[in-house]
Nucleic acid binder design. Sequence first.
RNA 1: GAGCGCGUAGCUCAGGUGGUAGAGCAACGCACUUUUAAUGCGUGGGUCCUGGGUUCGAGUCCCAGCGCGCUCACCA
Length: 555
Amino acid sequence: MYESEFEQSVFDLRREKLRQIEALGHPAYPNSFAPENLKVLTLAAIRGEYDAFTGEALEKDRVNVAAAGRIMAIRAQGKAGFAVLQQNGERLQIYARMDAVGENAFQLYKLLDMGDHIGVSGYLFRTRTGELTIHVDTLTFLSKAMLPLPEKYHGLADVELRYRQRYVDLFMNADVREVFVKRAAILRAMRKFFDARGFLEVETPMMQPIAGGAAAKPFTTHHNALDIDLYLRIAPELYLKRLVVGGMDRVYEINRNFRNEGISTQHNPEFTMLEFYQAYANYKDLMDLTEELIQFVAMEVNGTTKTTFNDVEIDLSQWQRFTMREAIIKFWPTEAEPRPMLTDFESVESLLGWIDRTLEGNLEVRAGFVPKILGEPLIHLKSSSSYSPLYVALNFARNSLELEQAPLGKAIAEVFEAVAEPQLIQPTIIYDFPLAVSPLSKQKPDEPDWVERFEFYIGGFELGNAFSELNDPVEQRNRFLQQLGERERGDAEAHAMDEDYVRALSFGLPPTGGEGIGIDRLTMVLTGSRSIRDVILFPLMRPQAKQSDADAISE
RNA sequence: GAGCGCGUAGCUCAGGUGGUAGAGCAACGCACUUUUAAUGCGUGGGUCCUGGGUUCGAGUCCCAGCGCGCUCACCA
């Protein structure tokens, strides 16, 4: 049954112990723990109630309690013994002595192992060292740990084992449990926030015939009875806006999206997103709402707007706002002058002019920043890690502009991501995005090449994306057609045509603001977790073949 | 997808320059009726990730593969 001899022998020994426990008259797997005349309390409730009581007070008026938990430490001492029970993240010590529990129960006690579940009843007292402890009268066996627990001092430290065997990680490492308690609190706070503002929580399809609403590669699945391929959704966006057309003026959805792309400390193939839509609002309204929301959630969850991420203190009550073009100028590194000016972003020619001045000015001067590789094809640049991201981005922008592979807006967005994004540690809203990278957003009235869209950043990565929704069906159809063009040119992430969505818009979508917020990433920020896998209970791992399977495969 | 690092007992980790594998916890046995990383005495436990190669000899060196982590790319 087990690959290791050690685990198999422990398992066999524990089965023998279970047999002995049954021989003493205790069921090996009882159906419940329900002592007579005594309500079973949680360990948290007992601690909450009696942690403040002195030993004298507990001696004067005896408090009888019943509780259950997993044995996390056990210290036998002749005809008595201590054990520490753990339940729901709370711990409490128990003390069992033969003259109190009787011969039979003490025999049972001696058959207990770390990891077993037991129930006890008895009275509370304080030991010589002052620790609150249950003096056990009756001992009930509940369930056996058939495998040995990890080391009791260091716990389970191997990162891979922690993700693969989260069930062990959770009861061994208290802080892991805390992260997921907070994650639940974050979801609760978000629902509270939106419910209080008249938003309706809805659920839209996760299996979609057209995977729309974002630029990403979808997972494909198949429905047998209908014999059709379906996609796991990459975003709920287009369905939620259909609901706004239908008169649900304020809706939100919190659930999973699936994107068939790379895995990193910031990306899991399935991730949780909050998306919400508010009729008669625009992106400026959502900026205010976003700042309010993040602060509210932080206060509800942590009781403070301060949080520490990557050893940097972040204040979620202090927000900055820049346009994308302003951000490039502001965050342009001084060692890489000339810094661009707003006019440089006006046309392909002006941008190319600035890029050339910048690359020439830096050539050979600052080796760490700009290596001498101007002539190289960009395919090598993109996948190489030996050049500065800034340099790679500038070259990519320049080459794609010269070869007319990308519009001006796409090049500017490229430069922005390389220059500014890593520096956006404190809460920052970046607004006014290029039309070219925003197929679903509404144009700015005075600058038709730019749209009313913003993203917000905390800790150096993007947490949310919002815009004034494009509600002109004719324009939307044109944008889809443009995306189809990019699809034909090989962009697998370009948007597909969604005729029914255009039809929905044709019935009239009111001016609407919509936003998506990555819950996993927000949880990272609020819990100080560096990896997204630390805030997802079961992150996707490559399945591990057993040795016997591996042999079979290789044959 | 690329680069770097890691993989030794159930767990946490040691194992200069190649010489047949070790500690603590856990497990098993004994002692111990207020301990708390309990203590004392004793015992067992390993395909050193997998497969090749070099060598008289490989945990150690070389090659390939697998898994994980980090960085980068894609992306949220």
